[in-house]
Design a protein around this nucleic acid. Structure first.
Length: 468
DNA sequence: TCACCTTTGAAGCGC
DNA sequence: GCGCTTCAAAGGTGA
């Protein structure tokens, strides 16, 4: 909420900047800032709510005269009301499930991760696994039971549980990292439903979902008949004749993102060193499962040939097939960066809390919250993004971001309207809501950050540059 | 139907 | 090396 008397908006903006460039020795301030992250969110939320209400009111009347000062009583009251209402919702009055429940992922930070020098699983992740993945042990147990059915050289279930890094994107627009990783207690509040619920209830619609067979990943739209016929997700990494080079337990079959789940950083190195490039399908949108790689989007192709009269279309078939061939060309998407991963995880929460759905507004909030994240939390996302890029590189060695540029795939996006430095966007929340305004990145800081990035690129993510 | 909006970060490219 | 541009996700909005 804009705090005119306290200069809250400016302060927030300043804090954002502090957070963005932590290498400039400003982390102390950030800690205190993080402690107020929730309060900040509440402020943003209430501001947005109030703002939307204000906008609605303004449309019917001469809003310029009536627009209340930000600290007017009505403003506070409404904000308080909205906050109280939100609090009621979170108190359990209206149960809200986690945005992405039941993902069959097991995300345990890489043991080589810098976050826990002792190599142990972070408490947060542990808590997350316990609460969100109560079936973990069960699954491991079931894996053990299934182990007998499988290649004796398969690794132990423990192997499965560890070092799983979901790195690629979900074909259904839900990034595996998103539901999987709860980086802070804030992300996983006690108000979240018990883990067994999400499997039965659609978190978005609240509509009960039919239970999934225990052996089927709920994220594969597979018919029961296909169960058991599914080759191993890493089948494309497996030598043709027989045994997988990399032993995989049946647990791997449960994961929608096989490579992501079974390949972590070290594993990626293993794969890259172990498998010749021809074993990595750079241009295949489908695994042997028939399930597209999440990072690949194959444009929907009309099934004209099978549905239309063959004779009448014979003449134009050639042209159609030509077009279809182009359409079929798989679109390998860019790996998500840290902020995108964060957005995917937090979007649902912000939407639920702010009762906003417009992505532009949501993204503004998320941008602010991103800046409000602690260094450690951001580092986790950077690390995940780094791993995602790593895996992406290994999956698609020849792929370049340039491939997705204009001319490579899809339609050309119209160039955004460039804003002049002092120009404000009337649509922008920043225009009306100082709480959402972010200070521009100065050239000095950009430069510093560029240097920062260059160094980081040589090793890890920017936040790890501290060590240098 | 599709571009736009809005965010941050990664990557490509030209100078 | 720097600055600019594009794309990644998301869903409402407007043309």
């Amino acid at each position: 909420m804009p705090q005119l008397n306290g200069g809250g908006g400016d302060d927030l903006g300043a804090n954002d900047e502090l957070i963005s460039f932590k290498d400039e020795g400003e982390q102390e301030e950030k800690i205190s800032d993080n402690s107020s992250a929730e309060r900040d969110l509440a402020d943003v939320k209430s501001s947005l709510v109030n703002e939307s209400e204000t906008n609605q009111n303004s449309s019917s009347d001469s809003e310029a005269e009536r627009r209340p000062p930000p600290r007017s009583e009505t403003f506070r009251d409404k904000s308080r009301e909205s906050l109280e209402e939100a609090a009621k919702r979170q108190d359990g009055g209206l149960f809200k499930g986690p945005p992405y429940p039941g993902y069959p992922f097991i995300m345990i930070p890489d043991l080589t991760s810098p976050y826990l020098p002792n190599g142990s699983l972070s408490p947060t992740a542990r808590t997350y696994l316990q609460m969100k993945w109560p079936l973990l042990d069960v699954q491991a147990g079931s894996l053990q039971s299934r182990q007998a059915l499988k290649d004796a050289r398969s690794p132990s279930p423990a192997h499965i549980v560890s070092n799983k890094v979901p790195v690629v994107q979900h074909p259904h627009h839900v990034h595996p990292l998103t539901p999987l990783i709860t980086y802070s207690n804030e992300h996983f509040t006690p108000g979240n439903p018990p883990p067994h619920l999400p499997a039965d209830v659609d978190p978005k619609t609240g509509i009960p979902r039919p239970p999934h067979p225990p052996d089927i990943s709920p994220y594969y739209p597979l018919s029961p008949g296909t169960v058991g016929q599914i080759p191993h997700p890493l089948g494309w990494l497996v030598p043709q004749q027989g045994q997988p080079v990399y032993p995989i337990t049946t647990g791997g079959f449960r994961h929608p993102y096989p490579t992501a789940l079974t390949v972590n950083a070290s594993m990626s190195s293993f794969l890259s060193s172990r498998f010749p490039p021809h074993m990595v399908p750079p241009h295949h949108s489908l695994h042997t499962t028939g399930i597209p790689h999440p990072a690949i989007v194959t444009p929907t192709v009309k099934q004209e040939s099978s549905q239309s009269d063959v004779g009448s279309l014979h003449s134009s078939k050639h042209q159609d097939s030509k077009k279809e061939e182009e359409k079929k060309k798989p679109h390998i998407k860019k790996p998500l960066n840290a902020f995108m991963l964060y957005m995917k995880e937090m979007r649902a929460k912000v939407v639920a809390e702010c009762t906003l759905k417009e992505s532009a507004a949501i993204n503004q909030i998320l941008g602010r919250r991103w800046h409000a994240l602690s260094r450690e939390e951001q580092a986790k996302y950077y690390e995940l993004a780094r791993k995602e890029r790593q895996l992406h590189m290994q999956l698609y060695p020849g792929w370049s971001a340039r491939d997705n540029y204009v001319g490579g795939y899809g339609k050309k996006k119209k160039r955004k309207r460039d804003k002049q430095p002092g120009e404000t966007n009337e649509h922008s929340e920043c225009f009306l809501n100082p709480c959402l305004s972010l200070p521009p990145i100065t050239g000095e800081k950009k430069s510093a950050f560029a240097t920062y990035k260059v160094k980081a690129a040589a090793s890890a993510h920017p936040l790890q540059m501290e060590a240098y």
